[in-house]
Amino acid sequence: MNPDPKTMPDPSAMISVRNLSKLYKDFIALDRISFDVQRGEKIVVLGPSGSGKSTLIRCFNRIEPHDSGILSIDGKIINAQTDLTQLRATVGLVFQNYNLFPHLSVLDNCTLAPRLVKKTPRADAAEMAMRFLQQVNIAEQANKYPIQLSGGQQQRVAIARALCMQPEVMLFDEPTAALDPEAISGVVGIMNDLAQQGITTLCVTHEMGFARHIADRIIFMDKGRILEITPPAEFFTTPKTQRARDFLDQMISY
């Protein structure tokens, strides 16, 4: 399962990383990470707080540039010369705290990037936005401002906004961490639907239901390293490392 770090990245994989490292000053946030994500795969990233999960997925759209190692997305090597516009149109990202644009209506939040980046005509962008807003069950709020929506509604808008760029990979960074239980089920439901549609998904989440039933594989991280990459059935029943066992114990008691 685990690729040999010395091999070249897999060009057929959607995401392929070899020996990826990231430093903040002299703090090692990511330590020689290697793995592949195939097209259509759903990966859940687990790990204690500060283990480098956010840093890792932010490397994939180069919001955080990596310092060494090789990263390839959709068969293309990502480095300082990469066309960021194209990369980021391919890789969508949903944040824990939504980061909706407060000065724009729900609809305009969704149409802004397609209009500016892809030069989609306003009417076409709006039509597509309405389709995705419908998909996340929020179409009736299209003309409201983010401040008028609940947290769960805002996160659903954020997902629709990312989908409007028609990405091939969706990254979720703890999308439900700031939500109450009711709102969580709504958002997880939408992520289930997306997974069903076959979009490549990397999700940092502590939603065990999603991790167990939807994920193809679990990546377990600690202190900037990947300790395990295994299917969920295996991970949740027979974790290989003590760290993973401790982590799971904590999750359950919590």
Binding site: N61, I63, R88, F95, N99, A113, V117, R161
Partner: peptide, 18 residues
């Protein structure tokens, strides 16, 4: 202005200017 706003703009492939 919240730092997350710039991140969100970046993540949506918008240019610095945009």
């Amino acid at each position: 202005v919240d730092k997350g706003q710039e991140l969100a703009g970046d993540a949506l492939a918008m240019s610095r200017r945009q």
